[in-house]
Computed example of a mutant assay.
Amino acid sequence: DKARRQVREARSALAMLNQKVSGLEQDYAALETQITAGRAYAAQRLAALYKVHWLGRIHLLATADSFFDFINRKVGLERILAQDEQVLEKLRSDQIAVEGVLEQLGSARAEQQATEIKLTRRIQAMDGEQHRRAQLLEQVRSEKTLALAAVNSLKEAAHALNATFNTLTPVAPPARPAESLAGVDNRPFNTHKGLLHWPVKGKIVSFFGPYRDEKTNVVNFQSGINISAERGEPIRAVSDGYTIFANWFKGFGNMMIIDHGDHYYTVYAHLEEVFKVKGDRVESGEVIATLGDSGSLTGPALHFEVRHHGKPVDPLEWINKG
């Protein structure tokens, strides 16, 4: 990624700078050796020139045995002086060169230090990013573990509810006076398909049927619909019937099951207050509970099911969508 590429580039630049510094240090050492040797030679030559000056150039030439010897001494002296001038010029050139090398060396070392600091910071940043990613990965794994546990809990609750329907014994409703039956809709439950009113005012947040959990990528089955609404919102029976279950149920919280006859049932879960008990008669539109979040993993929402012979069917096929 970008951070690793930057670290590689910084390391490559630092390696080149190290080579440059090493080369400059070698050049500096060689020049220092030359300057030291040149200074020693120059000191000897200055001493010799001082003696020549003390004796006098004319005296040196005048003591020649012949004109030929005079010419040879003059040419030799001029060559010596010229060579001495070259040595002194080389010494001056080497001193200027070493000053330049020292300047380049100082600049290279400063750049080397800046590159090392930059490399250290990039490595620290990369280590920090790797640590952050490791923490994020651990968090994701932890959340996925929790999500898987939640999905498994929902599956277990659904299986338990299915098993509960096999063991429920309908409670015969108490006899009602004839006058109290006036206006009661005695039509079979299946004649109300598509006509049932909503059990609570709210918004559907999950639908009936198979679905894939986004966090765990696990396929699960929703045996009803979940309707999100405000806590305390009244929950109403969708049709006449009587209560065959009103208690806490693992995974669903406070739950009520109403028997509507002909093996049709409706389930209301995640309730807060429950106003009916087992055996109570309920009428269509009657408030039977209030909305809560007991047993819910997503906040206040009503879990609503319609079942026939204990098997869940799509509630939206029964509710009046108008």
Score class of each variant (00 low, 15 high):
178 A>N: 08
156 E>T: 12
161 L>M: 07
84 D>E: 06
45 R>W: 12
229 A>V: 05
69 D>L: 05
145 T>A: 13
236 R>P: 00
227 I>D: 00
237 A>T: 01
154 L>P: 00
252 F>H: 07
248 W>P: 02
216 T>P: 03
67 F>S: 12
269 A>I: 06
100 G>D: 11
19 Q>L: 11
158 A>T: 12
46 L>A: 11
129 E>F: 13
92 R>A: 11
252 F>T: 03
90 K>P: 09
254 N>L: 03
89 E>K: 10
138 E>D: 14
31 L>P: 03
136 L>N: 08
78 E>Y: 04
86 Q>K: 04
316 L>I: 15
111 E>N: 04
92 R>D: 15
244 I>V: 09
214 E>I: 06
236 R>L: 11
215 K>M: 09
155 K>R: 11
12 S>T: 08
249 F>V: 03
121 R>F: 10
258 I>S: 01
238 V>T: 07
296 S>Y: 06
320 N>E: 04
153 S>L: 04
283 E>P: 02
60 L>C: 08
245 F>V: 05
148 L>C: 05
2 K>I: 10
126 M>L: 15
283 E>L: 04
95 Q>L: 12
13 A>P: 02
206 S>K: 02
272 E>K: 02
281 R>F: 05
112 Q>W: 11
244 I>D: 03
282 V>W: 02
22 S>F: 05
322 G>I: 08
18 N>L: 08
247 N>P: 06
216 T>W: 02
247 N>K: 10
287 V>A: 06
285 G>I: 09
316 L>C: 01
76 G>C: 04
295 G>D: 12
49 L>R: 04
19 Q>Y: 05
184 V>A: 05
281 R>N: 13
173 P>G: 08
174 P>E: 10
150 A>G: 09
120 T>R: 13
321 K>H: 07
212 R>T: 14
170 P>S: 07
89 E>C: 07
157 A>N: 06
251 G>H: 10
213 D>R: 06
18 N>F: 05
284 S>N: 09
122 R>C: 01
257 I>G: 03
255 M>H: 06
278 K>Q: 14
305 E>R: 01
205 V>G: 03
230 E>A: 11
124 Q>T: 15
197 H>V: 13
124 Q>F: 15
103 E>Y: 07
291 L>V: 12
293 D>T: 03
126 M>F: 13
173 P>E: 12
48 A>E: 13
168 L>Q: 10
